[in-house]
C-alpha cells in the first residue's frame, strides 16, 4: 500500500466541504455519505486548504495563531492532511 502523496497546495476534493453546524455549534467536514467532526485546530487547518496555500504556508499561519512549537504544528498538519488524502478527501 502506497503512502498517499500530499498535494503541494492542498484543497478539498470535489464533494467535500467544511461547514459550520449552527445547531451543534461545531465545524464539520461534509463528505460523500459521511460527516467528519472538525473541531478546533482541525477546522483552522481545513479553512486554509483552498488550493492557494502551500503546506508550509498553512503551518506558518497556524504557528502565528496558536502558541505551539512550529515543529509540533507541522507534524499535526502533515498527519491530518495525509489521513485526509488517504481517504480521498483532498483533491489530487
Amino acid at each position: 500500500m502506497d503512502e498517499p502523496v500530499l498535494p503541494e497546495r492542498p484543497r478539498l476534493a470535489p464533494g467535500v466541504r467544511l461547514h459550520f453546524d449552527k445547531t451543534r455549534g461545531a465545524w464539520v467536514l461534509l463528505c460523500p455519505e459521511r460527516i467528519i467532526e472538525a473541531e478546533g485546530p482541525a477546522s483552522e487547518i481545513l479553512k486554509r486548504c483552498d488550493g492557494t496555500r502551500s503546506v508550509a504556508a498553512i503551518v506558518d499561519e497556524l504557528a502565528a495563531v496558536f502558541a505551539v512549537d512550529r515543529a509540533v504544528i507541522a507534524h499535526d498538519v502533515t498527519e491530518m492532511l495525509t489521513d485526509l488524502a488517504g481517504k480521498r478527501l483532498l483533491a489530487s
Binding site: 500500500m1 502506497d2 503512502e3 498517499p4 488524502a85 488517504g86 481517504k87 480521498r88
Partner: peptide, 8 residues
C-alpha cells in the same frame, strides 16, 4: 489493498 489511497 489494491485500491488503498485511490478508491474508498
Amino acid at each position: 489493498t489494491r485500491y488503498a489511497g485511490r478508491l474508498v
